[in-house]
Design a protein around this nucleic acid. Structure first.
Lengths: 269, 269
DNA sequence: TGATATGGTTCATATATTGAACCGATGTTG
DNA sequence: CAACATCGGTTCAATATATGAACCATATCA
């Protein structure tokens, strides 16, 4: 590990809950020598990556972050940050994958990717996603602003015989999503289509949207469901990372539980 | 200079106008060896500070910037406090407005706002602002720590034929800023760009940075200068207020004098 | 007053960084 | 199409640079 990489990992110890850290404290957290840590902080400070609170001498993230984040945002718009993960997801699952973004009270399609594996495949052709009947919508209801639930029950349009049409039905579905970390729509929007989704987050620490897989129901087996879920987790982490967000710990925990990998954080890059 | 500092300065070469840079190109820009630059980029990539465009192999700023900027903003919420005033300033003047923050001996760009009024407008695309050649820099020299003046005269790079290149020239400019309360850069950094700035303060009662307007020189008239100055005062007061600071009485007095509104404190919201 | 924190500094040691030269691939050009 | 240029990436000997135990100066507290 290069000394540069070591210096940079120091930055990862700053967070909203612990925004300012003293030298000795940071040494303990990072498990590194004090002189070394001090020099690393000096280097970071010279580049504006950290600065010292003049009053306490504690260190905090510096102003250069703001400038660089602006350039990053101008360089990689949101859609581009989702596309690679989406194609990987479609390829790995062999099913159609798509990403939705929540804007206000509406869930919009951002982009979509069809896997070429099968002659029969789901085609996602929506501008806006009904909250109560799609996997992405349920995901947003479960993890997004609470006010959305009222919006959803105000228009419980019945698309298929599986569409939830009562508040009780919808509450039950959303509760399941909350406990598993995955949105699931069993032919509730279109017959013969099974949807599975996972939430994605952005820099605001709020839910930003969902990533989902639409699967032809005839192919849907417990094995495929497990496979899709584990790929969804990878895609959701990737997109969230590109959008500057973090997956809430409780959702990571729910995923780990649902996938029966009690301690799974096997891919963080 | 530590290798970490060298690696970090690579990041400053990325900008909105040049968001992606190839290895060889970056070596030329940074004036460093290719192997070294490559390893530095590897270290930066491992921390998510840069990433490679898979298609072109060119490097660009990475997703980690977004997360860190989020934490920084949560720690020192400056950008949110500056943005409304900045858009109002850009809108009222019809020119490009920006805010800079002083950290240590370096003046960083915090955010920028372009007015849509004109087809031709200034584009601020800087990571750090030279102290001697920009309106914001002169403002900081005039009202910030005295030690900055030594830093400034240590590197009097000549950007245009109007750039001050002697200590005497710079002293004269800074004295003018002190007596008027406004930083002014008449095409001293870029030809055809007139800069005007005002200091902003934070809770520490120290100078925190500057708010500035970059104006296309061809449009610059005495009337516009007066208009920009009075808008700058409004913006500087607003930002200072949001950052928990107070404008020193002597600067308020200088402003009132310069604007020929002897008792002007007519808008403080 | 002594014990224990803190942020910051020193210096011999040796480890990690450096850059000229090199490689294979791709693209240009007369 | 062969010669040339440029690209991203790699190698290895030379050495510049990072390292950490011990050490300050200062502040806090019992």
């Amino acid at each position: 590990m290069s000394s540069t990489a070591k210096a940079l990992t120091l930055l990862s110890h700053f967070s909203a809950t612990q925004p300012e850290i003293g030298l000795s404290q940071l040494c303990r957290i990072a498990g590194r020598d004090k002189a070394t840590t001090y020099r690393h902080l000096q280097a970071l400070e010279s580049a504006g990556f950290v600065e010292q609170n003049p009053a306490t001498k504690h260190y905090r993230l510096g102003p250069a972050m703001m400038q660089l984040a602006q350039v990053r945002e101008a360089t990689v718009p949101r859609k581009d940050g989702a596309k690679p993960a989406l194609t990987a997801l479609a390829d790995a699952t062999g099913e159609t994958a798509h990403v939705t973004v929540l804007s206000g009270q509406t869930l919009y399609a951002l982009c979509e990717c069809e896997a070429p594996h099968h002659g029969i495949r789901a085609v996602v052709d929506l501008n806006t996603f009904p909250l109560h009947a799609t996997a992405s919508g349920l995901c947003v209801l479960a993890f997004g602003p609470a006010t959305l639930f009222d919006v959803a029950i105000a228009s419980l349009e019945e698309f298929t015989e599986n569409t939830p049409t009562t508040e009780a039905d919808l509450t039950a579905l959303v509760d399941t999503v909350r406990s598993t970390g995955f949105g699931r729509a069993n032919q509730s929007y279109e017959a013969e289509i099974q949807g599975l989704s996972a939430p994605v987050y952005d820099h605001s620490s709020q839910l930003a949207g969902a990533v989902a897989v639409a699967c032809v129901a005839a192919r849907f087996t417990p094995d495929l469901e497990q496979a899709i879920k584990s790929e969804l987790v990878i895609a959701a982490r990737d997109i969230t990372r590109n959008w500057g967000g973090v997956i809430p710990a409780q959702i990571e925990a729910a995923w780990a539980d649902a996938l029966s990998y009690p301690n799974a954080v096997e891919r963080t890059s």
